[in-house]
Every structure is written in structure tokens, then in C-alpha cells.
Design a protein around this nucleic acid. Structure first.
Lengths: 191, 191
DNA sequence: GTCTATAGGCAGATAGAC
DNA sequence: GTCTATCTGCCTATAGAC
């Protein structure tokens, strides 16, 4: 059960939901396709289970960052590091991948993808709002809009780094992003 | 020929390269699959032609922006508007979509995707470098790294806006991004 | 729980007539 | 250039034995 999810998760993050099959999973586990159907009635159920588990783990990681009570800048760095770890495993974010394929997904998977992004956004909004009120962060617009930029930039940085097989591309984009939200601009402004 | 590319392009931007078939294109054009094979030997050739045409058009749009001789901020706004137009057509950037599916693409398509991003990056690097030297833009790191952030953020903003079917989500992220590259910070810093 | 066997459908692709 | 006809292979899924 867990091994099925592990293999399927890796395949989806690597090749996309429309780019893998029950046969791929079965071959890796040395079982037959039929036995997979015992655990997950269809591909839609398997896909939904993948998103649910992935989201649960991700939210737990966010709670752990919160527990450390870091300042906003460090919390955002830790958040970006979650993405970097995925990318180091040569994987795309599961829900970033599924966002690309969104229009072809069964309804229950679509809804689960939305929930993933909603929870990311809510967590980031809180971090950003606190950072701004304490003066450690600076951005225009609402914290919610800034949160959407952070998710967008990190998901996009993973997306565009993968063709190059270059984690440094991700790191560079993440660093410039965090600097742009952190720098006060006081030094450079009047030069 | 052009109509084949038009239909296939829309399908790929909507459903992904692994989410459409010759049968889909044929049905829309009221022809048979066999006649499509006359124009494009296989799916790989069709896909490569799609990327080539898309990149040519995109590069032409970049040249047009350059021709207008805008300041860096306005040039970046025009650049973001290219993405917004695609999104308004309920489409993902062709090459952003293909970046997600990159690992499953035939070699010639992979190479063409890389070329698209390389050209985007080079153009942005030039705009950003000029903007910084003239004092209208502000960012940390190299212009190349900042260019990668801009591509990442806009591609990611398209990616994450599509599940919500909400162009405003893209616009908000783009606005915060451009502000973060533009604001001098002088006003907010000392308050 | 896992197997064999099989169904029914769609994929990409080709041969050859018109 | 477009057609009909067909091929081979893979897909998701199910029935029923063990």
C-alpha cells in the first residue's frame, strides 16, 4: 500500500499523471496490474490518495517550521528549502505537476489540488503578514497577494529548473525572491 | 498545415502533450488521422513544429517591445502582458506546459524547449541590466539570476492560476513581482 | 491479496486506393 | 492531399481461480 504510493508518487512527479500507468507501477513492484486494482479501484482513486498524503506531509512540514518560531525571513528560507529538497530528488512538486495537467484530471483530484494550494497560501500569508508588521519584510499589496507570488515563483522555479537538470537555477531564483522581499533598500536607494 | 498547428497548439496548452492525440486534432478539423501523418510524420515532428512556431512568435513580440524603447519597468510590464494574454485564452504557456512533461518528450522537443527559455532569459537579462544601470530597477545578484526569477515567477503564476480559472491571481503575483523589482524602498524604509 | 486471462478501447502509425 | 482499412501495442479495468 505504502510502496504503491511511493512508486506512483515518484512516477507522477517525474513524468506526470498522464505519463505513467498501472503497468509502470506494477513492473517496479514485481506484481501484476490486477493486484494494484485491489488497493486502488482506479487511477483516479490512486491519484487522490497521492495528493492527500502529499498535502498531509507538506502541511506537517509547515507546522514544524512554525514550531521553530523563526523570524519571517528564516521561515521563508525554510519554506523554499522544502521545494529544494523535492527538486534535488529530480522531482517536480506533485501538485505543481498536477496543476499543469489540471484540465485532464478527474474531479476529486482537481479539488484536492486546490486544497493543497489554499493551505500553502494561507500559511505564507500569515508568515508574510507577521514579517511585514515586525518590519523584517517589505512588499507591496496584500500579504495574500505576496503569498501568491511566493508560491508562483517557487513552483515556477522548479518547473523551469527541471529541463536544465540544475538545482542551482532554483536556488538562484529563490535567493533573489527572498532578497526582494527582505531588502530595505536603504543602502542602494540613495547611491 | 497552419490549422493543424493552431488546433494542436491549443490542445497542448490546454491538456498537455501527453493529454491530446492525433484523433483529437483530426476530429476538430473533420479530417482523418492518416491525413495528419502526411503533414507531420509523427507526434514528435508535430510537437517540434509547435515549439518552433511558438518561439518565433514570442521572440518577435520581444523584439517589438524592444523597438518601443520603453523604460525597464514598462518593458517588464509589457513582457508580463504577453503571459497574461495567453492565460486569458485559458491556456498555459506552451513551453511551461512542456517543461512539466519534459522527461517524457522526444529529444528534439526537449532541445527546442531549452532554446525557448534561453532566449527569454537573454532578453530579460538585457532589460534588467539596463534598468539597474539606469537606476530604475533594483535587485540582488546578477541580472541573469533576476531574469530567472522573472521567468520562474510568471510561469509559476500561470501554472497556479489555471486551476482557479482566475486571471487576477496571475495579475496580482505579477504586480507584486514588478513592484519588488522597482520600489526603491526609500519611503517605507525609514517609517 | 495476488494471480491468470481477457475484455474493450484508444494510442501512434502505415499501406495503398482515389 | 485525403481517404479507408488495418496493424500493433498499450491503456484502464474486470472476472474468477488460488
Amino acid at each position: 500500500m505504502t510502496r504503491i504510493l511511493d512508486v506512483a508518487e515518484r512516477l507522477v512527479q517525474h513524468r506526470g499523471f498522464n505519463g505513467f500507468s498501472y503497468a509502470d507501477v506494477a513492473a517496479e513492484l514485481n506484481v501484476t496490474k490486477a493486484s494494484l486494482h485491489y488497493h486502488f479501484a482506479g487511477k483516479a482513486e490512486l491519484g487522490e490518495a497521492l495528493i492527500t498524503r502529499y498535502t498531509r506531509r507538506f502541511v506537517a512540514a509547515l507546522a514544524e517550521i512554525q514550531r521553530l518560531d523563526l523570524d519571517a525571513r528564516a521561515a521563508l528560507e525554510a519554506y523554499a528549502e522544502l521545494y529544494a529538497e523535492v527538486l534535488r530528488g529530480r522531482r517536480m512538486c506533485l501538485c505543481g505537476m498536477l496543476a499543469a495537467e489540471y484540465q485532464t484530471l478527474p474531479k476529486q483530484m482537481q479539488d484536492a489540488v486546490i486544497r493543497f494550494f489554499d493551505q500553502n497560501e494561507a500559511w505564507l500569508e500569515s508568515v508574510l503578514e507577521q514579517g511585514r508588521s515586525k518590519g523584517t519584510l517589505r512588499f507591496s499589496g496584500s500579504a495574500r497577494e505576496a503569498a501568491r507570488l511566493v508560491v508562483s515563483a517557487l513552483e515556477g522555479a522548479m518547473l523551469t529548473a527541471r529541463p536544465y537538470g540544475d538545482v542551482d537555477r532554483f536556488q538562484a531564483a529563490a535567493t533573489v525572491l527572498l532578497s526582494s522581499l527582505t531588502d530595505t533598500g536603504a543602502v542602494a536607494t540613495h547611491s
